[in-house]
Design a binder for these strands. Structure first.
Lengths: 192, 192
DNA sequence: CGATTCAATGAACGCATATTCAATATATAC
DNA sequence: GTATATATTGAATATGCGTTCATTGAATCG
């Protein structure tokens, strides 16, 4: 359990990375095992030596996403506006500096929305409701005057969906000019 | 050329509508012809009486999108900030009141990004660069002080991607609370 | 070095699904 | 009312792709 296992792990990661990129660009169904194998430079048969099925490969990516990007957006008990500023800032930082993170972020939302995602995966993603806690935070921010008036749910949606849309672009075209996180926060920030 | 042709046209539209909804929720590849046929309540064979292939059905949707939603976002020679305000407002209005428009909007961006989209479709969508003209408008707005400082390309991306992300949500869950278009414009608006 | 395990291949298998087709019902036309 | 065109079906075909498998080559171990 030394060199060989390390090699195997490295190879698995290569596959995961190739699959991630293809999944977000073509979608799960349209991505062929042969596409992934070709990108990594191995035969189709060998890929099944590392992953027992296309679906389990997908699942493993989702698990990585739950442990990584998903944790980044977990609500805290900070001052409301501060939370939104910090979260956006941190998120944008990772999106810019870690392409893997960016792609993973996109994969997660695609998986959550896509009706064609495997059943197991959809189940894994249940219970990751970001809107409800966000909405509560927004109400607190409205009470202390740091966040603008308006339907808290609608504000929560606007904030997260805007980030979502920008993240998608950042993942797909990493060499683009990057927006500043503060711009997005202005969606919910109260004007002085 | 009367009743029968009208019926045929009506039937085609039913199919297009069902296909549109399935395409944006499951993706082109994962959507089976039998899914579409089932939703409309017809046999698989009959669907091929109305459309010669799955791909041509998809193409026809894209053509509708180019004639409809795509026109909504065409830059004009208005006062820059006013253009962004008006466009967002009109877009949000259609997104809320016309589910077909909303879904079509999502389909267009999915098609433009998705590497798995049929070749013809990708070609149809070439030359629809929204960012370049937008970026120029933003520069003008920065000169006259109505738009905030910052990289114009990045601002253009932030604005459109935010709208994109929100539109996606509106198309997928039409019964959600709706954000106001002005919130999004605040991404680029200069603070007083 | 011999034996055993792992890496790797490409062909074979089976299933799902887009597409075609022959057959039948229904509507239109004359 | 008969003939012709269109609507509709279900089964047959064909192809693409996930998965399996027998086999070979390379590395590790005693």
């Amino acid at each position: 359990m030394g060199i060989r296992d390390d090699q195997k792990q490295k190879r698995r990661e290569e596959i995961l990375e190739a699959a991630l990129d293809l999944f977000i660009r073509k979608g799960y169904a349209a991505t062929k095992i042969s596409d992934i194998a070709e990108r990594v430079g191995m035969s189709v048969g060998l890929l099944f030596h590392y992953f027992k099925s296309k679906e389990s490969l997908y699942e493993e990516l989702i698990e990585l996403g739950i442990m990584g990007p998903m944790q980044t957006v977990a609500p805290s008990d900070k001052e409301p506006l501060e939370f939104f500023e910090d979260t956006a800032k941190q998120l944008f930082y990772y999106l810019q500096t870690e392409p893997f993170f960016a792609k993973m972020f996109v994969l997660m939302s695609q998986a959550a929305f896509n009706d064609a995602a495997p059943q197991n995966v959809k189940e894994m993603l249940l219970g990751f409701d970001i809107y409800t806690p966000t909405s509560l935070l927004i109400q607190k921010g409205q009470e202390n005057g740091s966040i603008r008036e308006g339907n808290p749910d609608a504000l929560a949606i606007a904030y997260w969906c805007a980030i979502q849309g920008i993240a998608e672009q950042m993942a797909m075209q990493p060499d683009m000019p990057y927006p500043e996180s503060d711009w997005v926060v202005d969606i919910i920030r109260r004007k002085l």
